[in-house]
Write a protein that binds this DNA or RNA. Structure first.
Length: 568
RNA sequence: CGGAGCAUGGCUCAGUUUGGCAGAGCACCUGGUUUGGGACCAGGGGGUCGCAGGUUCAAAUCCUGCUGCUCCGACCA
């Protein structure tokens, strides 16, 4: 393409209302514009990147035996009632009514639609396995859209769904997708980790997230420094190393603790370590109120806690629940607290002569001992792990880093097929529920994540696989020689199938260089009157900043070699 | 939903405290000079100051209500 003919409205200044790097650069480089909160228009440059990434995704999906379809974004709410997610998915589901007041929603994901399709079409085990995927615009009514396209309300996603006759088949489908995802993100040159993940509202048994490591990430990846254990912080576990202290059990004692409703205040009031404290937090879900106990130096992990129950959502209990149980917020404890299920973290059980709230304003108990002073209904891992803890698999040390979730694979099992009555006939002619898996990749989010990982102060440094153009031709000086050489290169490279952007604008050098840096093509070739008179072209690689001159007469061969090296 | 902030030409912002002709830079158009890291000179076009009320001789500016957007939190694939 010629820059003079392409609509690439670059911005000299940082846009207001954009804080994260990828958001700024996507606006500044002319990839996209905002229409509303969490809603973006993609311009030619952005669309090219989307196309590049989609092509990679499609290639790897097709190679893994998945087949492309296109499902509707507009879906009858009825279908969502059937799976139970009309309620369960909650307010994030974008809902609307048609003129007859019939209820619809805009799909945030497509388990229901695909299952509906397959239950009508797939009758026999002979039709299985099957894996269908699509690339679709999805909608989520985010509480707070932010960070540009990293968390938007409308976004492009690739989603695939596998259907197998049994768990073994699912295992195979799942592994195929997992491998395909690794190939996809490898090809994009991204630094990422596949981590164990929670299944959230999608549901299912087993799941991995693909996390691009970047500071702007909203998730936290926990990984081991010596083995390949990696998990989302929501799910990460650690080996319990603490042993019970070798102390005499002291007698339970009630003490005054004025203004000590937090662990920090209590530590200074009593001059004791947080490890001695037993933090007690009331939670409730639709069915019950539970008391969660963790050691004072830990936080309750609500995901782990809620996974102990069938009900999806669990949240901090409302104020009135404290009154009902005859306790006081900030001074809650398990001693003499009745009518509530008590769930203690593993580490709480190791506390000897600990401290906990006395269920009276400004009073705590000292020398509290689990089992002696209070009973526990369930011991479980309900704490959020901390950096430096011990790896559950190899005994190494756990580290943490922020990550952007760009893909997730789920083993759904029969959750949707049972809810939607999607069955096939097995070899014995017996109906069996389809065993499903689902696999998503955030297309637009991955692109933003790639920028988060590949940029400098001047602009984007595209990985070659995603770059809207591979070569940026930058003629300078304006003479006929320069003009002719630029045209010749442009034509030859185009004919060779190289994606070239020719900056044929009558702009000053600074403008051209700055736009080239911003747009971030991997290879920049400056055709300047000076070096051209020496028979040379100037090459600069955006990723490495490496500069070199090449022979102008033999340039095509050298450029092709450079491209080959860049792609690797 | 709680807290904070913003809304003035296409973009970035000043002007609001203390009411008195709507501004600057960039971008755009015309002419000229310039041409290797965001040029210069001269001229020009473009704004219902987010919307609706109110106060006032007079409102971008003060008051009330609303809307949109951003950030922090809650929440979230």
């Amino acid at each position: 393409m010629k820059l003079s003919q392409m609509y690439i409205p670059t911005l000299k200044e940082d846009p207001a209302n954009a804080d994260v790097v990828s958001h700024k650069l996507m606006l500044r480089s002319g990839m996209m514009r905002k229409l509303g909160s969490g809603i973006y228009t993609f311009l030619p440059l952005g669309q090219r990147v989307i196309n590049k990434f989609q092509a990679i995704v499609k290639e790897e999906m097709n190679n893994s035996g998945a087949q492309e379809v296109l499902l509707p974004a507009l879906q009858p709410a009825e279908l969502w009632s059937e799976s139970g997610r009309l309620e369960n998915y909650g307010p994030e589901l974008m809902r609307l009514n048609d003129r007859h007041e019939r209820e619809f929603c805009l799909g945030p994901t497509h388990e229901e639609v695909i299952t509906d399709l397959v239950r009508d079409e797939v009758r026999s085990y002979k039709d299985l396995p099957i894996n269908l995927y699509q690339i679709q615009t999805k909608y989520r009514d985010e509480i707070r859209p932010r960070f540009g396209v990293l968390r938007s309300r409308e976004f492009i996603m690739k989603d695939a769904y596998s259907f197998d006759i049994d768990e073994a088949g699912l295992e195979e489908s799942y592994n195929d997708m997992y491998d395909a995802y690794e190939r996809i993100f490898d090809r994009c040159g991204l630094e990422y980790r596949a981590v164990k993940a929670d299944t959230g509202t999608i549901g299912g048994d087993d799941s991995h997230e693909f996390m691009v490591l970047a500071d702007a990430g909203e998730d936290t990846v926990v990984y081991c420094d010596s083995c390949d254990y990696a998990a989302n912080l929501e799910l990460a576990t650690a080996k319990v190393e603490a042993e019970k202290a070798d102390e005499e059990l002291e007698e339970l004692e009630l003490v005054d603790t004025p203004n000590s409703s937090t662990i920090a205040e209590l530590m200074s009031e009593l001059d004791l370590a947080a490890e001695k404290m037993i933090k007690a937090v009331l939670y409730e879900n639709d069915e019950q109120v539970v008391l969660a106990l963790v050691r004072g130096d830990y936080e309750v992990n609500e995901i782990k806690l809620s996974n102990l129950f069938d009900v999806v959502n669990i949240e901090l209990a409302a104020e009135d629940k404290y009154e009902e149980l005859d306790t006081v917020k900030g001074y809650t404890g398990p001693v003499n607290l009745d009518d509530v299920e008590v769930i203690a973290d593993e580490l709480v059980m190791k506390v000897v002569n600990g401290v906990t709230g006395a269920n009276q304003r400004e009073k705590h108990y000292l020398n509290v001992n689990p089992g002696r002073d209070f009973e526990v209904d369930q011991v479980a891992d309900i704490r959020t792990v901390k950096e430096g803890e011990t790896c559950p698999e190899c005994g190494g040390t756990l580290e943490q880093t922020p990550g952007i979730e760009v893909g997730q694979v789920f083993k759904l099992g029969t959750k949707y097929s049972e809810a939607l009555d999607a069955t096939f006939l097995d070899e014995n002619g017996k109906p069996q529920p389809l065993v499903m898996g689902c696999y998503g990749i955030g297309i637009t989010r991955t692109i933003a994540a790639a920028i988060e990982q590949n940029h400098d102060d001047y602009g984007i440094k595209w990985p070659t696989a995603l770059a809207p153009f591979t070569v940026h031709l930058l003629p300078l000086g304006g003479g006929d020689d320069v003009e002719n050489k630029a045209q010749e290169l442009y034509q030859t490279l185009n004919e060779a199938g190289v994606e070239v952007l020719l900056d044929d604008r009558n702009e000053r050098a600074g403008v051209k260089f700055n736009d080239a840096d911003l747009i971030g093509s991997p290879i920049r070739i400056t055709i300047g009157s000076r070096s051209l008179s020496d028979g040379e072209l100037e090459v600069k690689l955006r990723q490495s900043d490496e500069e070199m001159n090449i022979d102008a007469d033999n340039s095509i061969a050298e450029i092709k070699e450079l491209i080959a090296n860049e792609i690797k």
